[in-house]
Amino acid sequence: MIIEETLIDLETDGTTKEEVIRHLAELAQSQGRIQDIEDYIKAVLHRETEYSTAMGFGIAIPHGKTAAVTEPFLCFAKVRSIDWKALDGGLVDLVFMIGVPENAGNEHLKILASISRKLMKEEFRSGLREAGSSSELMQFLLNSDLGIG
């Protein structure tokens, strides 16, 4: 699975985009998905400087494709409202972060597309916000049939 319970944090303390990205990267590293955490964070932040990964509806999907990633992963965090420099100017309270190895082809596009299709639906977004624990959220994702292994 690209996401698992240990890659989910519903009580993230970070108050900035940088803090949240680092926190999620640490989760991925602790699960052996990232080899060089600084390299991964650098790749994600570089992308953020080119354009914001805030997608509207209070959701951001930062992502990095780099050799620092050993195994594709998807992390999730609920955060306190953060200014993610969104195109719509809105604050972000839900973050999905993706990591894929450099040689993963279009894997990150597929993951992005799959999550985005779900996020277009109001009931999916409210399901994410209503989950009370990591295990509940994991179960919700499994039941939602994200279409990614």
């Binding site: 959701i59 596009l109 992005l112 597309a113 799959s114």
Partner: peptide, 17 residues
């Protein structure tokens, strides 16, 4: 799959490589 390209989420959902 059809989407509204006025929304970034819609464009992402298309997954066009």
């Amino acid at each position: 799959m059809t989407i509204d390209p006025k929304s970034i989420l819609g464009i992402m959902a298309l997954g066009a490589a």
